[in-house]
Simulated scan of single mutants.
Amino acid sequence: MRSVALEIAVQDAAGARIAFAAGADRVELCQALSATGGLTPSPGTVDAVSEAAGGGARVAVLVRPRPGGFVYDSEEVALVTSDIREVVRRGAGGVVVGAMALDGGVDMDAMRRWTDAADGAEVAFHRAIDVAADPVRVMDQLVELGAHRVLTSGGAVRSLDGFAVIASLIERSAGRVQVMPGGGVRVEDIARFVAAGADAVHLSARAASADVSPSGPGGGAAGFDVTDRAVVEAARAALDGALAGAA
């Protein structure tokens, strides 16, 4: 049977434990996901999630220094380089990064530095590809860089709406870079992505916490996101069903 990975975005060790118990193959670790789209987690969080995963091999860590666009100056590139080295030193199996040039293509110099810093750990290119002027050209650049996979919504808010672009990326990759749909993926979308040849699917599987502790101007909005076990379980079942049907 063909292998398609289920990746769940998590923000803490509790989320990682839930994701793996419910059938995830891998987690992407980040912080401030709903507010910013994800930022670099703390070293302590990397350690805690790696421990929850039984080791860092199934943990991909987002390394993104700030919210906003994906064009970085030299100081930011150096910071990400340092953070990548630290994440890999702590045992993470992969890093998730992305840098764009002003012309709408990949910042190849930044990505080469970051790939070198990963020192053999898997390198995934994140949804920076979704702002590219020509995503198919970006796929060629990722092949040149030796990237392991790319996370994409096909340039749409919801991945299913970017299905045609994702299918084109899968065709262009021809197995050289894994293509992983992500961004608004719902359980009912999974079978279609599997049929198109996706190598993995990515869900945030978020739910609002039941936190009722006081918050205020210095603490942001009340509550926070948690990983929803039921959503992960449903995604696992949908993925297994789609793979069985394709066998």
Rank of each mutant, 00 (worst) to 15 (best):
G105V: 06
E122G: 00
A230M: 04
A22K: 03
T152G: 08
G219F: 14
D130H: 02
S204K: 08
V27W: 02
F70L: 13
V157E: 08
G104D: 01
A48E: 14
I18T: 15
D103R: 04
E171L: 09
D119K: 00
V96I: 15
E28N: 03
G37H: 10
A92Y: 00
S82E: 15
M100F: 04
Q11R: 10
A78D: 14
F224D: 02
G223D: 10
D240R: 13
L243T: 05
T81V: 06
V77F: 02
T81S: 14
E188N: 09
I166T: 07
S204L: 09
A110H: 13
G182D: 05
D109L: 12
S3P: 13
P65G: 11
A124P: 01
G15L: 06
R112W: 00
A121G: 02
V136L: 15
T40M: 03
H148T: 15
R17F: 00
G245I: 00
A21M: 00
V177Y: 01
S209F: 07
S74P: 00
R158E: 08
G245M: 04
P217D: 13
S74C: 12
G23F: 08
R26D: 01
S159W: 07
V165S: 09
E171C: 10
L102A: 14
D12S: 11
G184D: 11
V179H: 07
H126M: 11
T36A: 10
V46C: 13
V96L: 12
P65A: 05
A14N: 05
A19V: 05
S159C: 12
A78E: 15
E75M: 11
R90Q: 15
S168C: 03
R137Q: 09
D25H: 14
R89I: 09
V201Q: 07
R58A: 15
G197W: 06
G223V: 05
L102W: 05
D140W: 00
T81N: 15
R90D: 13
G38Q: 00
D130A: 04
E7Q: 05
A210Q: 03
V97L: 15
D211L: 11
R112T: 03
A24P: 06
E144P: 00
R89V: 07
V150D: 07
V123C: 04
A99R: 12
G93Q: 02
L33I: 12
G241H: 05
M111H: 11
